[in-house]
Simulated scan of single mutants.
Amino acid sequence: MKDIDFDSIGKKLKEIQTHKGFTQKFVASSVKVNTSHISNIENGKVKISLTTLVNVCNVLGTTVDYVLKN
């Protein structure tokens, strides 16, 4: 089984967010986390929890499986 690539997840989330014109502040407030936490996720500094991943995907209008695909 492959390890989860948290760097790739963060980059994909940032790409979707940017494409949709959403700010980190908007995403963070929508999922009730700090803006710095979203930044750290996008930059691969922290591992995103499953709950936060699902919530961020819902805000971005995407699916978890799309974000997890390499």
Rank of each mutant, 00 (worst) to 15 (best):
K14D: 07
G44M: 06
I41T: 09
D3F: 14
I38S: 05
A28N: 01
S36D: 11
H19Q: 11
L68E: 01
C57Y: 14
E15V: 01
S49F: 01
V31R: 02
I38H: 05
G61V: 00
I9E: 01
K32H: 13
K20G: 05
V54S: 14
G10V: 00
T35M: 12
N43L: 09
Q24H: 04
G10N: 00
K32I: 05
K12M: 00
S30D: 05
T63M: 14
V64L: 07
N70G: 13
Y66P: 00
K32E: 09
S29E: 15
V56A: 10
I41E: 10
L60E: 09
I41M: 07
A28K: 03
I38E: 03
V67N: 02
C57F: 14
L13W: 09
S49P: 07
K47H: 12
K25V: 06
E15A: 09
M1Y: 08
D5A: 11
G21W: 01
G21V: 01
A28L: 05
S29L: 07
N40I: 07
S30W: 14
V56K: 09
I9K: 08
D7R: 04
Q17F: 02
T18C: 11
S39F: 06
I48Q: 02
Q24D: 01
K69I: 02
I41V: 15
K11A: 05
G10Q: 01
L68F: 04
K25M: 11
V56G: 03
N43G: 07
F26Y: 09
Y66R: 01
N40Y: 14
D3V: 13
S29F: 10
D65L: 02
T18N: 10
F26A: 07
L68S: 03
K20T: 03
N34A: 13
S39H: 11
K69V: 02
G10K: 05
F26H: 01
M1G: 15
V27C: 00
N43Q: 10
I41F: 11
T52P: 03
Q17D: 04
V54M: 14
K20S: 10
N58K: 12
L13V: 00
D3M: 15
I48C: 06
K45H: 10
L60Y: 02
L68W: 07
L50M: 12
D5E: 02
K20D: 08
N58T: 13
N58G: 13
